[in-house]
Design a protein around this nucleic acid. Sequence first.
DNA 1: GTTTAAAAAGAATAATATTCTATGATTGAT
DNA 2: ATCAATCATAGAATATTATTCTTTTTAAAC
Lengths: 153, 153
Amino acid sequence: MIDIDPVDLKILKLLKKDGMMTNRQIAVELNLTTTPIHERIKRLRRDGFIEKYTIELNRKKLNKNLIVFCNVSLKEHAQQFLTQFEKDVQTVPEVVECYCVSGGSDFLLKVIVSDMEEYKDFILNKLAAISNIGSAQSHFVITEAKHSSIIGE
Amino acid sequence: MIDIDPVDLKILKLLKKDGMMTNRQIAVELNLTTTPIHERIKRLRRDGFIEKYTIELNRKKLNKNLIVFCNVSLKEHAQQFLTQFEKDVQTVPEVVECYCVSGGSDFLLKVIVSDMEEYKDFILNKLAAISNIGSAQSHFVITEAKHSSIIGE
DNA sequence: GTTTAAAAAGAATAATATTCTATGATTGAT
DNA sequence: ATCAATCATAGAATATTATTCTTTTTAAAC
């Protein structure tokens, strides 16, 4: 696994900010021509540094205005139960992220819904439907104060 | 604020999966021609449903293999202290996300670093340097079991 | 100083986006 | 029921951009 150089890092930062930047725009920004930019991006994609191109959606416009972090503990902790929970959680669209964590609980879920009523439905009909749930503690997001990337802002 | 129709939603899902899909590819997928696809995407961008085009990076390749959720409580809770903390946290690159939450603590931070040593440095030299910190409790991510979008998988 | 390899430049071609105009369908009013 | 108006889509022409190939420059090693 070879490392990336400062030029690669600058390209990644620019594409993170705007994935539609043309090779020419990037080239101007970095005082290069389009060819090396094109070759570098090709390599960064081939080697997996860039996993994919995607879009960022506006939660509010799509009527998903409530974020809740939910700490879940299981009753049984044998491996089969842990992996079963991870499997079950895949099928619940409200659960956007799921982490197996150390500390107070077994899993941390990031849940995104439209409002409190939909969250109630999630807890009562989706989460409770999963077997082996011991306890669940909800932390409602009041403000999303920061949302950045692993490479700078 | 007008609503989006099922065709718009399908376009958003396709672009979420692959932001580099050409209008023609999307058109073939949805049994349309390139023009309506182009017009719809232009509208979805203009109206803010699509916030931006971007790339997804590979954490491990970039040597960011440790995710930690950190519950932070402040000593003082007057508004000025809350907003000051939110401001301070912006300058710390290791903090990728920051939420003001209800429940046990004031803030939930998502921290991404290369390893435990870098996390130690974050706690001792970055977080502790911020004023008004009452307590901080770390939850280390063992497994990232799910990572999806607000529109389906 | 010469050789070698890597990176970048330049130019030509292929693919795509973008715009303009035209057609068909739907809606609302008379 | 008919007409006008609006909207979504289609088709075609143009402008951008990506991509590839070849050449030139740069840097390092001997």
